[in-house]
Nucleic acid binder design. Structure first.
Lengths: 107, 107
DNA sequence: TGCGTATTTGGCAATTAATGCAAATAGATT
DNA sequence: AATCTATTTGCATTAATTGCCAAATACGCA
């Protein structure tokens, strides 16, 4: 595998990994409706504000969110609303089966 | 937040988390071209076969892959090709900036 | 049955992630 | 300047992930 390919896979994986936490997905959902300051986000999330702040940093570090300080508040904004359009695909994946298929003969 | 919402977020997060590893993304890419047995996948991936097997299990457990045993080989198949259509969005996220915006006054 | 190939699982060590508390920082207000 | 509010960071703890090796399992074939 080429170095370029490896870097691309690494970069993509970072984005998916950042999305791989329910709290961070809740944040993304919230911001899909427009920017919010940390305190507003914190109100809706059952975790210490420091924890919320770290989740926000994870999302910002990979580029999913951007932040802007205005006064003494920091507003976070969703940079790629396209993420929410992926939920339909994700949900098509969520189902009961264990993904194994049995051969006729062994049923 | 309702219990239903929480479960949905958890389920979605599981899918994203499963995609959050470069080796697993490489596997997904490979399988986008059609099903493969573990030994074929292993040939293209620089890791112990036991490691590859575990990555495959992660992807199968969340429903992204399915597997079928035929003879003494196990074939894995991508259950949701829609995943690869998400890359354009993911790549729009991959960029140099740190996601912060400075106010005019403080520049 | 016994052997060879393919795949998974157990055990373990090393690394990374998540979380809360307390302290630090930055800007607003008095 | 002193203080208040909003947010981030340091630290410690616990939990989860990753990866390899070795052993176990499952199947095909002689």
């Amino acid at each position: 595998m080429s170095t370029t390919t490896k870097h691309l896979l690494d970069a993509r994986a970072e984005v998916f990994k950042a999305l791989g936490h329910p709290t961070r997905l809740a944040i993304v959902d919230m911001l899909a409706g427009g920017e919010r300051c940390v305190c507003e986000i914190d109100e809706h999330i059952d975790a210490d504000m420091s924890t919320v702040s770290r989740h926000l940093a994870v999302l910002r570090n990979v580029g999913i969110l951007s932040s802007e300080k205005r006064g003494n508040q920091v507003f976070y904004r969703l940079e790629c609303p396209c993420i929410t359009s992926f939920y339909a695909c994700v949900e098509s994946v969520i189902r009961g089966g264990d993904g194994t298929v049995q051969l006729e003969a062994s049923r």
